[in-house]
Amino acid sequence: MASLITCPHCGTRPKEEFSIRGAAAPRRPSPAARDEVWHRYVYVRDNPKGRYEEYWHHAAGCRRWLVVDRDNLTHEVFGVTDATDHLTAEAGE
Protein backbone atom coordinates (compact mmCIF):
# COMPACT_ATOMS: atom_id res chain seq x y z
CA MET A 1 0.00 0.00 0.00
CA ALA A 2 2.83 2.27 0.60
CA SER A 3 2.80 3.07 -3.08
CA LEU A 4 -0.70 2.65 -4.45
CA ILE A 5 -4.21 2.75 -3.07
CA THR A 6 -7.22 1.57 -4.96
CA CYS A 7 -9.85 4.18 -4.21
CA PRO A 8 -13.34 2.69 -4.41
CA HIS A 9 -14.42 5.73 -6.41
CA CYS A 10 -11.38 6.62 -8.51
CA GLY A 11 -9.41 3.42 -9.01
CA THR A 12 -5.72 2.83 -8.36
CA ARG A 13 -3.86 5.97 -7.38
CA PRO A 14 -0.42 6.86 -6.05
CA LYS A 15 0.15 7.68 -2.43
CA GLU A 16 0.81 11.35 -3.15
CA GLU A 17 -2.87 11.89 -3.93
CA PHE A 18 -3.81 11.06 -0.34
CA SER A 19 -3.33 12.50 3.07
CA ILE A 20 -3.30 10.14 6.01
CA ARG A 21 -4.95 10.92 9.31
CA GLY A 22 -4.43 7.86 11.48
CA ALA A 23 -6.37 5.12 13.18
CA ALA A 24 -9.91 4.64 11.90
CA ALA A 25 -11.07 2.47 14.76
CA PRO A 26 -11.75 5.12 17.42
CA ARG A 27 -15.36 6.33 17.27
CA ARG A 28 -16.21 9.83 18.35
CA PRO A 29 -18.04 9.39 21.65
CA SER A 30 -21.43 10.81 22.40
CA PRO A 31 -21.27 14.35 23.74
CA ALA A 32 -22.45 13.02 27.08
CA ALA A 33 -19.81 10.33 27.43
CA ARG A 34 -17.49 10.33 30.43
CA ASP A 35 -14.23 12.32 30.38
CA GLU A 36 -12.28 9.07 30.39
CA VAL A 37 -14.01 7.98 27.18
CA TRP A 38 -13.24 11.28 25.48
CA HIS A 39 -9.64 11.11 26.60
CA ARG A 40 -9.25 7.64 25.17
CA TYR A 41 -10.86 8.69 21.92
CA VAL A 42 -8.49 11.58 21.34
CA TYR A 43 -5.27 10.23 22.85
CA VAL A 44 -5.13 6.47 23.29
CA ARG A 45 -4.28 4.28 20.31
CA ASP A 46 -4.42 0.51 19.95
CA ASN A 47 -1.50 0.75 17.56
CA PRO A 48 -1.52 -2.94 16.69
CA LYS A 49 1.27 -4.56 14.74
CA GLY A 50 -0.44 -6.20 11.80
CA ARG A 51 -3.92 -5.62 10.51
CA TYR A 52 -5.00 -2.05 10.95
CA GLU A 53 -7.70 0.30 9.73
CA GLU A 54 -6.56 3.76 8.85
CA TYR A 55 -8.20 6.94 7.57
CA TRP A 56 -6.91 8.16 4.22
CA HIS A 57 -8.31 11.21 2.51
CA HIS A 58 -8.34 11.19 -1.27
CA ALA A 59 -7.46 14.85 -1.33
CA ALA A 60 -6.35 14.98 -4.97
CA GLY A 61 -9.20 12.79 -6.19
CA CYS A 62 -12.78 12.41 -5.09
CA ARG A 63 -12.12 14.10 -1.73
CA ARG A 64 -13.75 11.24 0.12
CA TRP A 65 -12.41 9.91 3.40
CA LEU A 66 -11.53 6.26 3.03
CA VAL A 67 -10.88 3.47 5.47
CA VAL A 68 -7.86 1.53 4.35
CA ASP A 69 -7.75 -1.95 5.83
CA ARG A 70 -4.10 -2.88 5.71
CA ASP A 71 -1.27 -4.72 7.39
CA ASN A 72 1.22 -2.26 8.77
CA LEU A 73 3.99 -4.85 8.86
CA THR A 74 3.72 -6.30 5.35
CA HIS A 75 1.98 -3.27 3.86
CA GLU A 76 -0.56 -5.54 2.23
CA VAL A 77 -3.92 -3.87 1.62
CA PHE A 78 -6.99 -5.96 2.26
CA GLY A 79 -9.57 -3.44 1.20
CA VAL A 80 -10.44 0.21 0.83
CA THR A 81 -13.93 1.47 1.63
CA ASP A 82 -15.58 4.84 1.71
CA ALA A 83 -15.60 5.98 5.35
CA THR A 84 -19.33 6.64 5.34
CA ASP A 85 -20.06 3.22 3.88
CA HIS A 86 -17.74 1.76 6.46
CA LEU A 87 -19.78 3.36 9.23
CA THR A 88 -23.03 2.14 7.72
CA ALA A 89 -21.66 -1.38 7.41
CA GLU A 90 -20.44 -1.23 10.99
CA ALA A 91 -23.82 -0.03 12.20
CA GLY A 92 -25.48 -2.85 10.30
CA GLU A 93 -23.39 -5.52 11.94
Binding site: S19, R21, R28, Y55, H57, R63, D82, A83, T84, L87
Partner: peptide, 13 residues
Protein backbone atom coordinates in the same frame (compact mmCIF):
# COMPACT_ATOMS: atom_id res chain seq x y z
CA UNK B 1 -11.79 21.73 3.93
CA UNK B 2 -10.42 18.29 4.80
CA UNK B 3 -11.66 18.75 8.36
CA UNK B 4 -15.17 19.67 7.22
CA UNK B 5 -15.24 16.67 4.91
CA UNK B 6 -14.02 14.44 7.70
CA UNK B 7 -16.70 15.67 10.08
CA UNK B 8 -19.44 15.34 7.48
CA UNK B 9 -18.39 11.92 6.20
CA UNK B 10 -17.40 10.17 9.41
CA UNK B 11 -19.12 11.95 12.32
CA UNK B 12 -22.45 13.08 10.98
CA UNK B 13 -23.23 11.42 7.65
Amino acid sequence: MAHLEFCAQTFWP
